[in-house]
Simulated scan of single mutants.
Amino acid sequence: MANTHNIVWHQHMVDRQLRESHNGHKGAVLWFTGLSGSGKSTLAGAIEHQLASMGSKTYLLDGDNIRHGLCRDLGFSEADRQENIRRVGEVAKLMVDAGLIVATAFISPFQSDRQKVRELFSPNQFFELYVDTPVSVCEQRDPKGLYQQAREGKIKQFTGIDSPYEAPLNPDLHLDGQQPISDSLSQIIALLLRHHIIQIDY
């Protein structure tokens, strides 16, 4: 742990509330979790596109993209996965402070890690969206060929095969990973409206 004795938090004149007023909506994170191939990245991209088309200020944090930069030094051990999620949580927190609606697409297999990220945020800023897709369906989709490699022993500690996935017990939104994308998007928009993150003027 770094020595933080001489580090002091500075409160700046421009705060989240002012940024949110300029953006026309509140900052929040939509934390998509689910197995590889569950459809979470597709949904995260689709909701970002829909929100952006509505004029919302958004950003998408994708698991693979993050590992090309911020987390390129991490592997897939349990400790590295925990650090991966910790870093993403801190980045998402900064973006929410900027007043953005942030969609994240990470397997984030451990309940304790997701809970730690939730605790970084104030109420109504963090929403856990569980994309519930059976592993058999994910394996049939297998867009990257990862399940086959895991079955063949070429990939170790693969979630859903030889590493556990702890499904959310009480997610903010439980999405059927086999339903039409449009149905999931409607549920997500309804969630954001219900919590007054966005407004729709008729």
Rank of each mutant, 00 (worst) to 15 (best):
S112C: 14
E78D: 07
R81S: 09
E119P: 05
R81Y: 05
E20C: 10
G55F: 10
N84S: 13
C71M: 15
A52W: 06
Q17H: 04
L100S: 01
S38T: 01
L94H: 08
F127C: 13
S108F: 05
I47S: 08
Q125C: 06
Q82D: 14
N84K: 06
E90L: 05
A79P: 14
R86P: 00
F127H: 11
G34A: 02
G63Q: 02
I101G: 00
P123I: 07
Q17G: 13
D15F: 07
F110M: 15
S53R: 08
G75Y: 07
E128W: 05
L94A: 14
P109F: 10
M95L: 10
G39H: 00
D73I: 07
I66Y: 03
K40S: 03
L74T: 04
L129G: 01
Y59Q: 13
G27N: 01
F76G: 13
R118N: 14
M13W: 09
Q111A: 15
D80H: 04
Y59P: 03
H22Q: 15
K57V: 11
W31C: 04
R67G: 04
V91A: 09
N65M: 12
P123C: 08
G99C: 14
A52K: 06
S122F: 11
S122V: 07
S53N: 15
S41L: 00
L18T: 15
V102R: 01
A46W: 03
N65R: 09
H68I: 03
S122L: 14
E90H: 09
V96E: 04
A79D: 13
R118V: 10
V131N: 00
R118A: 12
K93I: 13
V131W: 00
V131G: 00
H25N: 01
G34I: 02
F127T: 15
D113K: 07
A105D: 02
Q17D: 13
D97E: 08
F121D: 08
W31T: 03
L30C: 09
G99L: 03
G75N: 12
L60H: 10
E128T: 12
V29C: 04
K57P: 10
